[in-house]
């Protein structure tokens, strides 16, 4: 079993390189989303286009999340929840991204990418 060791290393290197390759491919071909959908307690609260700058206050005085849309990106700037995971999550703009606030039961997700979406993965 000593001779094939070099081939094993090559094979493993190729496999790991493939992983990096797939990751890079997905990263660079991801599609800008058209809008974000806000869901509160499982009910759709509203849908906001990403190309229009706006600020939305979701919730009431005691439990709220402030959604900011600017320059095609969406993020939560302020929230009533104790852990602030939604605020720290940062900005989202691509298909399949989401910001979730469990304490307030708020889900903000990107929807409706451009037509290029179909090409992202052919298998």
């Amino acid at each position: 079993m000593k001779k094939p060791r070099r081939n094993d290393f090559l094979l493993i290197a190729v496999l790991l390189a493939a992983a990096v390759g797939v990751w890079a491919w997905l990263y660079f071909t991801r599609a800008q989303s058209a809008e974000v959908k806000v869901t509160v307690d499982g009910v759709v609260y509203g849908t906001y286009p990403l190309d229009t700058d706006t600020t939305v206050r979701i919730g009431d005085d005691t439990s709220y999340n402030v959604l900011v849309i600017q320059n095609g990106e969406a993020w939560v700037s302020e929230a009533s929840c104790p852990d602030k995971i939604c605020v720290n999550k940062g900005k989202i703009r691509y298909d399949g991204q989401s910001i979730i606030c469990l304490p307030n039961n708020v889900v903000i997700e990107t929807v409706g990418g451009e037509a290029a979406q179909e090409d992202v993965v052919a298998g």
């Binding site: 496999l15 790991l16 992983a19 797939v22 990751w23 997905l26 992202v120 993965v121 052919a122 298998g123």
Partner: peptide, 25 residues
């Protein structure tokens, strides 16, 4: 993953591929 992509009819699962390639290796 390929099977799941066919069964669930979603190509989004490909996002798992990089992690699964590394963990599988």
């Amino acid at each position: 993953i390929l099977c799941a992509m066919v069964v669930l009819e979603t190509e989004k699962l490909a996002y798992y591929l990089p992690v699964l390639l590394v963990s599988g290796t």
